[in-house]
Design a protein around this nucleic acid. Structure first.
Length: 641
RNA sequence: GCUGCUGUAGCUCAGUCGGUAGAGCAACUGAUUCGUAAUCAGUAGGUCGGAGGUUCAAGUCCUCUCAGCAGCACCA
């Protein structure tokens, strides 16, 4: 008979099998009421689960980390129940909890409208109020298949069919609704509470396969407390405000228009940022012993055939015609071009590692649905480089790269970087020994750099393993920025070689690497990270000098001159407007420093400085202010030197 | 690319039952010289994304198309 060990180490002995709920009730009625599920020897179970042997047991309540996912999953079932009650012709398929809520995929001819969503949500509240008991049932797989065949639900039949014939499956029933589900679930629908909301409906392919039918996915979110829900919704609103597409327009950084979808028109202010970032990167690359090059925008198809891109990447390549039937392709990548430079002349082992960098403008014909502001475009510039090296140098080059990348990310204000490690895919080039070596080298590079990686099994490129450096945007979307890829294949295909110590000809390894990824995406991420309030060194306009009356304009102009002479991006706002109007306007434009000049400042040779976001201002002697501002706007890599 | 939604002034949006287009902000002009997040007054601004159709009449209804948005798929 079971001995139950509780989290505090206490043991309870029973002379008969008990349910998790029995144990909870034994501990106290409050706990029995609060319990949503339990954890049996670490695994989540229903409260109704019968325990027959010795085990450790912990109750899961709203305080538990897993509890939110649990009620969200419950909520998905309530959503499905509501949909079936309102639209009986609908087929339910799959509905899990996800990071910020849950969804359920439905098959139904007619699309769900916004009004439908409101009606469904209302019905969901009613179902919660009904407090339907949620019960678990164990069926044989064959029973389940027969059930769904009879109901003519092919999607469910497919799910159950995938399970081995002699196994059992579990169903969860609440009211008249029953669904194939692993569980666990809370004991009744009332446990969900009312702090939930349906967010949107959108298409989603059945089983994530674009060749299969499209279902309608209804997204929702749920919390334990109403105020948690409203906090989440407020957070979404705030995130929307820092959307780079809105800010890019509002701050006059760039625009995109119909005639050039997926390409950016950089306005003077946006281009100032762009150039500042490019200059910074150039300094960092110089310091890290990279050599910068520039390769052709269009290259004959024959080179892309050799490199393998024509085969594997043709759909995404733009082409142009010339001289009759000659086909040129706009480069989607810089690597083949770099190999052409590498191949000029003979390379000695003494020249390796050779680090070749390019701010390479690439064109890729991305699917229309993939385009997103300046984050995902068809014309973009990579801070690309290829390191030609020996296999033995992969490790040290990888480390140096990770260090450089982290240092650069830090300079831009990103400390929290997630790294995905993609190892060997099913179909690949190169033998296992080489892969072992490459993977080990990449791993040691990340370890040395102090990076935590998550494994992305089998997601490596066919030519080698890769690291992907991922940042998350304001709206919670992940964007891949940096990458480090080990490549044994391209040097072979494009016949790159070097002369080894013993005089033999050898293949170099190519490390493909980017830090920012694309200039466009990087700037988009920066805008969202800072909500448009760029660090002073990146701000398009760093200082505005605003005279309070005409009488002091000449002194204000002098202040402007002083700053401009030191390379400060400074403007004089001598318009006939009140100082409060100017302060508001330049604050809205997110200028980091506003200098107000009045009679007092003119007389004393001072300035009144106001920092963006501050309510107050300080009066500083002009000389001191100039040197302070110069320090403030100095790019991070040039500070203290 | 797929599903759904959206497209009206530089921006944010309103526009009823089909009856010939409206607000705020921005812009421009004038007045105001005013010490830290919007001074007042006036003026101008639109082939209603594009093409076709229905109608006496289309921003409004229908078809096609382009673009944007959300999600899915894609991102070597």
């Amino acid at each position: 008979m079971p001995v139950i060990t509780l989290p505090d180490g206490a043991k309870r002995q029973y002379d008969h099998p008990v349910t998790a709920l029995d144990v909870a009730a034994d501990i106290g009625p409050g706990l029995a009421k609060a319990a949503l599920a339990a954890r049996l020897d670490g695994a989540l179970i229903d409260l109704s689960h019968v325990i027959e042997t010795d085990a450790t047991l912990a109750m899961v309540t709203a305080k538990d980390d897993d509890a939110l996912a649990l009620i969200r999953h419950d909520c998905a079932h309530v959503l499905a129940e509501a949909v079936l009650e309102l639209y009986p012709e609908t087929q339910v398929t799959i509905g899990p909890s996800i990071d910020n809520g849950f969804y359920y995929d439905f098959y139904r001819e007619a699309p769900f409208s916004a009004d439908d969503l409101a009606a469904i949500e209302t019905r969901m509240h009613a179902i919660v109020d009904r407090d339907e008991v949620i019960t678990r049932e164990v069926w044989t797989r064959d029973e389940a298949v027969a059930f769904y065949r009879k109901n003519d639900e092919p999607f469910k039949v497919e799910l159950v069919d995938a399970i081995p014939a002699n196994e059992t499956v579990t169903f969860y029933r609440q009211g008249d609704f029953i669904d194939l589900c692993r569980g666990p679930h809370a004991p009744s629908t009332a446990k969900i509470g009312h702090a939930f909301k349906l967010m949107s409906v959108a298409g989603a392919y059945w089983r994530g396969d674009s060749n299969r039918p499209m279902l309608q996915r209804i997204y929702g979110t749920a919390f334990f407390q109403e105020k948690e829900l409203s906090a989440y919704l407020t957070m979404l609103e705030e995130a929307e405000k820092r959307d780079h597409r809105k800010l890019g327009k509002a701050l006059e950084l760039f625009h995109i228009q119909e005639e050039a979808t997926g390409s950016v028109f950089w306005h003077p202010k946006g281009w100032t940022m762009y150039r500042e970032i490019e200059s910074y990167m150039r300094r960092r690359l110089d310091a890290a012993n990279y050599q910068e090059v520039k390769t052709p925008q269009m290259i004959d198809r024959s080179l892309w055939e050799k490199s393998g891109h024509w085969d594997k990447f043709r759909e995404n390549m733009f082409t142009a015609e010339s001289e009759g039937d000659r086909i040129l392709a706009l480069k989607p990548m810089n690597c083949p071009g770099h190999v052409q430079i590498y191949r000029q002349g003979i390379t000695s082992y003494r020249d390796l590692p050779l680090r070749m960098a390019e701010f390479g403008s690439c064109h890729r014909n991305e699917p229309s649905g993939a385009l997103h502001g300046i984050m995902r475009v068809r014309a973009f510039t990579q801070d690309d480089a290829h390191i030609f090296c020996t296999e033995d140098q992969i490790d040290s080059e990888g480390r140096a790269f990770c260090d450089l990348l982290l240092d650069i990310y830090r300079d831009f204000g990103f400390d929290d970087v997630r790294v995905k490690f993609s190892d060997r895919p099913e179909t690949r080039a190169g033998d296992d020994a080489t892969w072992d070596k490459a993977e080990a080298a990449l791993e040691s590079a990340t370890n040395a750099a102090g990076l935590d990686t998550t494994l992305n099994p089998g997601e490596g490129a066919f030519y080698g393993p890769k690291l992907e450096f991922v940042l998350r945007d304001a709206i919670g979307r992940d964007w891949q920025c940096g990458t480090l890829q080990v490549d044994f294949v391209l040097p072979e295909r494009l016949d790159a070689e070097y002369v080894a110590e013993d005089g033999s000809r050898q293949r170099p390894v190519m490390l493909h690497r980017a830090i920012l990824g694309s200039m466009e995406r990087w700037i988009g991420i920066l805008i969202e990270q800072y909500a448009g309030r760029m660090p002073p060194w990146l701000a398009p306009v760093q200082v505005v000098v605003a005279p309070i009356t005409d009488a002091v304009t000449s002194y204000a102009a002098e202040v402007r001159e002083r700053l401009a002479a030191h390379g400060v991006r400074v403007q004089l706002d001598s318009r006939n407007e009140k100082i409060s109007y100017k302060v508001r306007e330049h604050s809205v434009a997110k200028v980091p420093f506003i200098i107000a000049i009045g009679e007092r400042e003119q007389q004393d040779g001072t300035i009144a400085l106001r920092r963006l976001g501050d309510k107050n201002q300080e009066t500083i002697a002009l000389d001191a202010a100039v040197s302070m501002l110069i320090e403030e706007i100095t790019p991070p890599d040039l500070k203290n030197s």
